[in-house]
Design a protein around this nucleic acid. Structure first.
Lengths: 151, 151
DNA sequence: TAGTTAGTTTTTTTATTACAAAACTAAATA
DNA sequence: TATTTAGTTTTGTAATAAAAAAACTAACTA
């Protein structure tokens, strides 16, 4: 693939992932910054470079980066004698990533258990449905453990 | 547990799930309607009953229900000689539920593959990270198949 | 056929969010 | 000590989303 074409495709992919991330509750600029740092060959960007890439205001980037830091998605380093911050995606290990997924699954299981526990009729349509979902989620929790142990 | 206390806890749970669902991109009223139909002992509500429970306008409930139908979360039945619609949660089988999860996982894998495919340095930090995430996701896809086959 | 029921659609209002602009701060440098 | 750099915080504004209100429609009923 030609260099310029690759670049263009990368930019398009950033837009696509940015838009996709909005469904996941990211604000537009935050999602695009995340995508920028994941997609481009350059994997560390300074604050100013990000502002330039995003074509938006400093304040907006500042807020979006705070948000991404809070979510544990990006981090920055500084180098002695250079006051700039170099932002990048936090490189988690697989354990940590699976751990986060497990946490979310556990929340779902908890909610389901609460619903079921408050129902009078333990054989109702919804209880049956919820129990089977819960069972499925627990299956994946078990498999997640196995996956981590076989690493 | 006392009847009145159980009712109260159910109402609280509806609020909780409603709020939680907002993170998943549900509009407030839609999330609470979904929760209502899942949590309460009464598993079918008419349009008017929902309006009363939600303490909001008919229009708002109408739109929220359209949204929930579109997402494949609720459905309604009508009975001969009764013009009312009885709404309930769609009781999917486990196959369908897992199928939906697989679809979302596949989208993530696709995005990751696209990113990796556009990178020059196939040994960069992010590529390493993304490949390991992709591997983990593929593992779960495989397990999902197994789960479905063992049903 | 006039009124009622069961909901939909449209319009308006309100609240929230995202962003831009500008003022501000702390550290470094000239 | 004045200026520049690298961002943060605040304030205002525009866009969007959610909800309320009201007008509408189609089917039924008295």
């Amino acid at each position: 693939m030609e260099e310029s074409e690759r670049r263009k495709k990368q930019k398009e992919l950033i837009e696509y992932i940015g838009r996709y991330s909005e469904h996941d509750g990211f604000q537009p600029v935050a999602g695009r910054i995340m995508a920028l740092l994941m997609v481009m060959d350059q994997e560390e960007y300074t604050f100013d470079e990000i502002v330039k890439e995003m074509q938006t205001s400093k304040g907006c980037v500042s807020l979006a980066l705070q948000n991404l830091e809070l979510r544990g998605i990006v981090e920055y380093t500084t180098y002695p004698g250079d006051r700039k911050r170099y932002y990048r995606i936090i490189s988690k290990d697989v354990h940590a990533i699976i751990g986060e997924a497990e946490k979310r699954i556990r929340q779902h299981i908890d909610m389901i258990d609460q619903i079921v526990c408050l129902k009078t009729d333990q054989d109702s349509q919804n209880v049956t449905l919820l129990k089977s979902i819960s069972e499925g989620l627990k299956f994946f929790m078990k498999k997640a453990e196995e996956f981590k142990n076989n690493l």
